[in-house]
Design a protein around this nucleic acid. Structure first.
Lengths: 339, 339
DNA sequence: TTGTAAGCGTTATCAT
DNA sequence: ATGATAACGCTTACAA
């Protein structure tokens, strides 16, 4: 005895109405009279009917799906963005189909293909630099697209993010201005955002006439707390202990650097100042609290999703590009009493 | 000029074959001759054809989707499980449709409904305690279901996890045996896993005859590093400073407790021993490194996904319940030189 | 307010 | 090896 999945017409039969009426009860209840609505609802409950979204999507050309591509599930920054996306999309009746490109534009290309197969009504992808083929696919899909995280020169469609270059320039300038002229740079993964931050660091250091190429330590390897400790050690070695401050391209690295200082008995900030980027929860709670740049990750996800939802509805957008801004958080880790 | 989405028959027309042949080239290429295959492939490329999954799902009754429900996107533990799921599902040609139940079995119910609407071929959900209605929906969906994270008494179908009670019992027993008899408990969120850990703690303490109800501090509020500091402070107050060790229900709390000790100038482990749970990256790298219980989160996700994939294929499973085990990591934070 | 008929783009089934 | 035809379950367009 095989139990076929319950369909619209099963419900219709039980409620003694036509299939389209059941469909209306679900999608446009205001167009159905009270008594009929009740009959249908009780039939739906009795049978435990669950509408088939594939059939619905096929017939209506609306999938109720938003496609999202992030570079990594291991990086908390993207998780918070995701949270923002889910928090808006779900209540609005949209499903999120997420894929992880592993920081590869080639994987990203095949993921865009796959996601487009689900006929998403909008796409949210991370940053720029997509392959030409990816761009073509996205353009010809004819759906709203948001590029998220960083402000780009030539967005495909919409763009939500911050200027990582400017943010890094700002915080580094402030550090230099307050006396930290022997400020090294430590970066891992070095994705486009990290590259922008490095540019900002460099410009700030050069403006002050204190840039030193050999104080820049980077690796393409994944970022982690352990990597922060490792790179910090390299910086100490390479600068022969000359650096007395370090700008880490993110808070994980900064945390690793701080832990390493503790192990080396290097007092922070007295002997070594540390600055991170992103302002994750731990940063403000460590000892000493870490200076960082607060980036509204969750809000970016929210904003991007709100924008695509509006675009799906065909509403006009005030602006296709939204700069979410950042906040510099100066904390004890860079507040040396005497220079 | 409206550009309709490219369909199978567009490709078929261009390649001068029938639609079903194009379908075969995509899904069962071994059943199509070489020359025809080439013709079709070039037509696909020329048109930039992307198959419509909704239509495919409808016609074939295979959606290529796995539904996943986790309680929270804010908790890293579940993110690592997710990583394991995505890492296996993607390459196997499955899309993951994820939903966040916010630790609510009622939200979970509506999310199961929503996900089932996508005709997933399998479902992976967190833990037990689902509503009766949820259980019914899952059962009558007739698809493989894995309950993940903890070993349950009466799983719906398959079950992958660890015994949180046993793990907590083990580590607490070891701490007590090595002299920490004034061991408090600190817990936040108190979801079913946390409850189990509390039970394990209690049993271990009672077995040793050192259990004290007033040394158990919990809150239903979300867990965080800041909350760890707060609860630790409460414990100190409530135990009038008598406790000289604390078992935190997770590593975030343990981290917060350690930071608070540093602020209070309480030497760890000399004056206060700290033990966490989960063994997240930071734990091993802090100063001092934190004792914790390593839980194979990523592997759980991998294992669960491998199991549902096998079940989808109709392959026999050796076992419907898999205990992934755990590892106790004793580190400096609980290694007092002299008791 | 309710219903009929046609089709959405794909695949299963049965032929050729 | 390839094709014709009828589903799959729902919604749109048009009637009644």
């Amino acid at each position: 005895m095989i139990t076929r999945r319950v369909t619209l017409s099963d419900v219709a039969k039980l409620a003694c109405v036509s299939a389209i009426t059941v469909s209306r009860v679900i999608n446009q209840p205001e167009k159905v009279s009270g008594p009929v609505k009740e009959k249908v609802h009780s039939a739906i409950e009795k049978l435990g009917y669950i509408p088939n979204r594939s059939a619905s999507a096929l017939a209506s050309a609306r999938s109720g799906v938003i496609g999202v591509i992030i570079p990594s599930l291991s990086n908390n920054v993207f998780i918070e963005v995701l949270r923002g996306i889910y928090e808006i999309a779900g209540p609005a009746g949209y499903q999120v189909l997420m894929a992880d490109s592993h920081y590869s534009h080639l994987e990203e290309e095949s993921m865009v293909r796959t996601l487009l197969g689900q006929s998403p009504e909008a796409m949210i992808i991370t940053g720029g630099g997509q392959t030409e083929y990816t761009n073509n696919m996205l353009r010809s899909a004819g759906i709203p697209v948001v590029q998220l995280m960083e402000i780009l020169d030539e967005p495909i469609d919409m763009n939500v993010g911050i200027s990582h270059r400017q943010a890094a320039y700002d915080v580094v300038s402030r550090l230099v201005a307050s006396g930290y002229k022997k400020l090294g740079f430590v970066g891992a993964r070095m994705d486009p955002r990290a590259q922008q931050r490095l540019k900002g660091y460099r410009k700030a250091m050069e403006s002050a006439g204190v840039y030193r190429g050999d104080w820049v330590i980077t690796t393409p390897k994944p970022s982690s707390i352990a990597m922060g400790a490792e790179l910090f050690t390299s910086l100490m070695a390479k600068s022969a202990g000359e650096c007395n401050a370090v700008f880490c391209v993110n808070d994980d690295l900064a945390m690793g650097a701080l832990f390493e200082c503790q192990r080396m008995q290097l007092a922070v900030p007295e002997s070594m100042a540390i600055c991170g980027f992103n302002d994750t929860e731990a940063s403000a709670l460590m000892n000493p609290p870490l200076t960082s740049v607060n980036v509204p990750r969750y809000d970016m996800g929210v904003k991007a999703t709100e924008m695509v939802l509006r675009a799906i509805k065909g509403e006009a957008l005030d602006n296709k590009v939204v700069d979410c801004g950042y906040q510099i958080k100066i904390r004890e880790s860079t507040q040396r009493a005497i220079y």
